[in-house]
């Protein structure tokens, strides 16, 4: 699955996303992954993820899986160590071998390869890289060539190793780039994963098989509505989960009531404090600028890593 060429700084990686997903041995028993996600956007995932990583006193990996708009690097300000292109294999047709049978077209669920009694037309932007057309072609006319869909960059910021996924502009397939980010975690590491907002495919690709899922929400009707969706996703994926309520003081008590009623642990609360937003807007870290909040993140990280909440690492 992995082909490496070129110098050590820039390597080309060819991933076969769907087969890679089926075969992957996701974070092994010795890796500890805490995923930070939220149904609603703008609740504080990045604030929580970056500060949790920063407050750690030992080496920790921070994965920015919000590949449509990664921004953890703005806060960590690390040194770029490595950049890897993520490629998707897309079909190329040798028309001299093609007999126009249309088998590839009938197989492709995504209409990325289309034959109307002719040599097939290929639409790389619709291709999910499954390789099915290559296998089914009776004349061996189809081969695969790489299409760049994203970049994975590794930064070092003190003890934080930041691995950032970035989707190429114009590409809509976030999950393969997210999986490429996750594939770069060496075994045995402690990992904080900053997930994209929502509950759709990119989020599932990010939080699947996390040891603990920390759902960040705010005590508003919007926060509650989207928290319920995120909880439903976590239950469907069987990922151990708890809630962090941010901006406590705005809105009402319905998020607290919901969590209590459903038996969902509230792992931490951060008050509504304008200074936190001001800090964020300058690209600074809360625990550096407002040291009184350091203890919240320190305690949360320790509790998550030691299982103090009764939320144990997934097995």
């Amino acid at each position: 699955m992995l082909k490496v060429t070129g110098c050590s700084e820039t390597v080309q990686e060819i991933c076969s996303p769907i087969s890679a997903l089926l075969q992957r041995d996701v974070n092994g028993a010795d890796t500890m992954m805490i995923a930070v996600a939220s149904g609603k956007g703008g609740t504080g995932k990045t604030t929580v993820a970056t500060n949790l990583a920063r407050v750690s006193e030992t080496e920790i990996y921070l994965l920015d899986c919000d590949v449509e708009e990664p921004n953890d690097h703005l806060f960590l300000k690390g040194e770029l160590k490595r950049e890897v292109k993520v490629n998707m294999p897309v079909p190329t047709v040798d028309t001299s071998l093609c007999n126009g049978c249309g088998e590839c077209s009938r197989l492709c669920a995504f209409h990325a390869i289309v034959s109307i009694g002719t040599h097939p037309l290929v639409f790389p932007e619709l291709c999910h890289g499954c390789g099915g057309c290559v296998k089914i072609c009776p004349t061996g006319a189809i081969s695969e060539s790489p299409r760049e869909i994203g970049t994975v960059s590794t930064y070092q910021a003190d003890h934080v190793v930041l691995i950032e996924g970035r989707l190429t502009v114009g590409v809509s397939l976030a999950p393969p780039v997210i999986r490429a980010v996750r594939d770069r975690i060496p075994p045995g590491k402690t990992v904080i994963l900053d997930a994209p907002p929502g509950t759709s495919c990119p989020v599932v690709a990010s939080v699947r098989d996390a040891d603990i899922l920390l759902l960040v929400t705010e005590p508003t009707p919007f926060g509650l509505n989207d928290l319920k969706l995120a909880i439903a996703m976590a239950r469907e994926l069987s990922v151990p989960h708890g809630v962090l309520i941010n901006r406590v003081g705005v809105g009402d008590s319905r998020v607290h009531d919901y969590c209590q009623g459903e038996g969902i642990s509230i792992l931490a609360e951060i008050p509504d404090d304008r200074r936190i937003a001001e800090t964020y807007s300058t690209g600074a870290m809360v625990i550096d600028t407002l040291p009184e909040y350091r203890a919240i993140f320190q305690t949360l990280l320790n509790d998550l890593l030691t299982g103090s909440f009764g939320i144990r690492k997934a097995t």
Binding site: F110, H111, V114, F123
Partner: peptide, 14 residues
């Protein structure tokens, strides 16, 4: 979910 224009065009070809 995707490829509606492609499928409609395929249909017209058929």
């Amino acid at each position: 979910p995707q490829g509606a224009g492609i499928q409609a065009a395929e249909n017209l070809a058929r």
